[in-house]
Design a protein around this nucleic acid. Structure first.
Lengths: 192, 192
DNA sequence: CATGTAAGTAAGTAATCACTTACTTAATTT
DNA sequence: AAATTAAGTAAGTGATTACTTACTTACATG
């Protein structure tokens, strides 16, 4: 276990509590207690609860992870490439579950910020997929590649949402991978 | 405009406010004011904020709508059937947007209840789709129909989530229908 | 006319909220 | 050794919270 600075301990505690009980459901007293820090220290460092919240969002954002995913695409065969992307996407979502919970809970309070976060990411993921598809596609079917990209991203995101957030299923990694690999095949059927 | 009873006016106000600001972000005073009712009346009828919340969930549940969708399946061609199901599913989600917002915001606080709500619905939708698919399928591919059902449901749910809740896009009905019809074709490609 | 019902008003409860002030302690740096 | 820094403690601020009490008003029903 790493030793965390006082500041980081507060951010960790706030991150977890906000994701479990929402912004309004979490008190600063509780955050301080969870971080084993006095409430005064919390306010000395962050000033207000609101700005602590914004620091949490900044520090724990999913954006860098997903941008890294987009950058790291390698030149496999189409099927291998899509499968590795699907896995990387799914497990990035899992590792950022708390961040996603927070943004979903506060989507109305912070709608502009949250639209900003997700709009660009979604667009970039879809663009990447379209670029990949168009490199490999054989025929011109009567539906466009953008919609296939949306469908692929949607299947995976919904799988995450259903298993990890709504139903909290204990589903094995190999079962997840089996499903993701089937999803890849569904997409391949539509472009090949 | 219908005249609502005092009780129903409170439920309507609470429904909207809970969906916009969450349970903890909404005060009983605000609910009463929005419903044009005195706060005392609110407590006389519902006793506690908590039980008002539960009444809202009961009254506004998406369950009956989705069960009706499952019952009303008619005998079109496979493509027409899936397309009409897709539309019905999507627009039911849209009409129950506030309910979905509330359950997402409070998923940690009321996890058992919310798992109960969605677990059965998801299972029944997937079962219905598998039943439909197996009636029409021609060959035995190497991935099973359950996974195609999950993919189909997932695409549509994610489309709703992305457009209506996360990004609040102003997307036309005909554009939605174009996307849904493409989603149907993606699925058809995988079972035919 | 008398009674019951559904609502309102005014006031107040104890608890909790975010946040502040004033002072102290311990360790590190200069 | 003196000064700075990062933390703590104790106490309290005014505002807001869910919820209550006591009494009142207006209307409908028997």
């Amino acid at each position: 276990m790493e030793k965390l600075s006082t500041r980081d301990r507060i951010i960790e505690a706030a991150y977890t509590l906000f994701s479990e009980k929402g912004y309004h459901g979490t008190s600063t007293r509780e955050i301080a207690k969870t971080a084993s820090v006095s409430e005064v220290t919390l306010f000395r460092i962050f000033g207000t609860k609101e700005s602590l919240f914004e620091e949490v969002l900044k520090t724990k954002s999913i954006i860098p992870d997903l941008l890294a995913m987009i950058r790291d695409v390698e030149n496999y065969s189409l099927e291998d490439l899509l499968f590795s992307l699907a896995k990387r996407f799914y497990y990035t979502l899992v590792s950022k579950k708390k961040f996603i919970m927070i943004t979903f809970s506060e989507v109305n309070q912070y709608s502009e910020k949250i639209i900003d976060i997700y709009q660009k990411l979604i667009d970039q993921i879809d663009e990447l997929l379209v670029r990949i598809f168009s490199k490999y596609k054989n025929s011109n079917r009567n539906f466009d590649l953008k919609i296939i990209a949306m469908a692929f991203r949607g299947m995976i995101f919904d799988l995450f949402l259903t298993n990890e957030i709504l139903l909290r299923k204990d589903i094995t990694k190999s079962e997840i991978n089996r499903i993701l690999s089937s999803y890849v095949k569904i997409v391949l059927n539509s472009i090949e």
